[in-house]
Amino acid sequence: MEGQLAHIGAGIAALGTGIAAIGVGNVASSFLGGALRNPSAAASQTATLFIGIAFAEALGIFSFLVALLLMFAV
């Protein structure tokens, strides 16, 4: 029973990856919007784009990790 509860928890935690995906999409869309307004400044900001994506993605990976821990380590 406890293991099944852990699996349910893992499923809930996995939702976090989807929510992080919204964040990553948000970063990318804002970047694209800005880049189309001012294309000359876009190239210099790709590093910033990836840093932003990395931070947003890290949180999704945290929830994925929680899911994995619940699945396999609890």
């Binding site: 990395a54 931070f55 993605e57 890290a58 990976i61 945290f62 994925f64 990790l65 994995l68």
Partner: peptide
């Protein structure tokens, strides 16, 4: 923490 978990997590996630 985020630096290491991001890398290991992404690798692990895709392969899993």
């Amino acid at each position: 923490v985020s630096h290491s978990v991001r890398l290991a997590g992404s690798m692990m996630a895709g392969h899993a």
